[in-house]
Amino acid sequence: MISCTEFIPAYSELFKFLQKRGGKDAVVAFWEYLSDNFLTNLQELVEKKGLRGCWEYWSHTLNEEAADFTMELDEGVGEFKIIMNHCPSKGCLLEYKHIEPYPHYCEHCDVLYRRVLEPLGYEYHADLSHCDKAKCSILVKRRKAGKSIS
């Protein structure tokens, strides 16, 4: 058994395996598959509860992943925000001295969550500019009426 505490390196190595087989397109195709098939719980929560669904989803996952974060929900303004002070996944990959993280590892979050949230009527903004230090942030905003995505 691969322990769930060893999952992050297992996933990073899977991304590297796919990249060797079919380039980055093959990795992104897998992320899209995961988003469509594995994040149905996030989709259902947001469909049912709006931004509060984001709050509930990430309350569960980020606490179980022992992340260092600040999460904000402002339903009046229509915004949900996560400031990740130390991402446990990227942090764990950076700590291992004997494995090289998949270079585009952090992009998987952007693909996975954007693909769920944008079709439900939300803007998804991710700042990955400091992900080399295991820091990032996301902002999910309720799209204003009349503003559509193409």
Binding site: T5, I8, N63, A66, A67, D68, E72, D74, P88
Partner: peptide
């Protein structure tokens, strides 16, 4: 009202078993 949740890594045990489903 705005809701805020702040957590440090030491506040929780690292055990996210849903990762098995992702694998």
């Amino acid at each position: 009202a705005k809701q805020v949740m702040k957590r440090r890594a030491a506040d929780n045990q690292y055990l996210h078993k849903d990762f098995h489903g992702a694998l």
